[in-house]
Amino acid sequence: MKLACRCGQVEGRIDPQRAYVRASCYCRDCRAFARWLGGAELLDTAGGSDIVAMAPDGLHITRGFEKLACMSLGPHGLLRWYASCCRTPLGNIPRDAKLYYLGVPVAAIAEPADAIEASFGPAGRIAVNTASATAAVASPPLRRLAGILRIAAGLFAARLRGRRNKLLFDADGLPLREPLVLGRTQRETLSADP
């Protein structure tokens, strides 16, 4: 499946076979990141981000790698990657390269909605961090547990195989781009709900 930023300067491919689960995340940090990008349209009506959780080796950037930029909402937060040309979110990863995880915003997948659903499942089927949602969100506990277990199983299997996230890290385990780290005041302003 094709990944692309809004202006088309960054492109890539996603292997659906490397996906763990599709989920909507309602945490304040995902909402703050969308606001920082200036993309309120990246959030659903309850303030959630539609994400495909996957193994990092399932994403390949084929064009515009020099346009990738990185930010973090704090000194210990996730590394959130975006296209510097048009501020399209492209993915988030833990700071530790040993955690074999990549969250790709569905907004960056340049395919028709029905093709995305056929590959990754329907939007909103699994909801996480619903306590931070801006409106009521249905979150069937068994579905949520199944999704979390799929992600955990993928992380555990990668750890057993000694896999490291090499997609956006150098050989020393440092991010390929120096992240812009937001200060507390800016983070709190972006995280505040109206």
Rank of each mutant, 00 (worst) to 15 (best):
G77W: 07
G77D: 15
G77I: 04
L79M: 05
L79V: 03
R80Y: 03
W81F: 06
W81I: 09
W81D: 02
Y82W: 12
S84R: 10
S84C: 04
C86N: 05
C86T: 08
C86K: 08
T88M: 14
P89C: 11
P89F: 00
P89R: 03
G91E: 00
N92H: 15
N92C: 13
P94S: 13
P94F: 02
R95Q: 15
A97F: 03
A97V: 10
A97E: 07
A97Q: 08
L99V: 12
Y100C: 10
Y100N: 11
Y100F: 15
Y100A: 08
Y100S: 04
Y101L: 15
Y101M: 15
Y101E: 13
Y101W: 14
L102K: 12
L102R: 10
G103Y: 03
P105G: 09
V106T: 13
V106Y: 14
A107P: 03
I109Y: 07
A110D: 15
E111C: 06
A113N: 06
D114Q: 12
A115R: 15
I116P: 05
E117M: 00
E117T: 07
E117N: 04
A118T: 01
A118L: 00
S119L: 09
F120C: 00
F120H: 00
G121F: 02
P122H: 03
A123S: 14
A123C: 12
G124K: 06
R125L: 12
R125I: 05
I126H: 00
A127S: 07
T130E: 08
T130Y: 00
T130D: 00
S132E: 09
T134P: 05
A135Q: 15
A136S: 07
A136L: 11
A136C: 02
V137G: 07
A138K: 07
A138H: 01
A138F: 03
S139C: 09
S139W: 06
P140R: 01
P140A: 06
P140E: 00
P140M: 01
P141S: 01
L142C: 04
L142H: 14
L142G: 06
R143G: 15
R144V: 14
R144I: 08
R144K: 14
A146C: 11
G147F: 01
I148G: 10
I148Y: 13
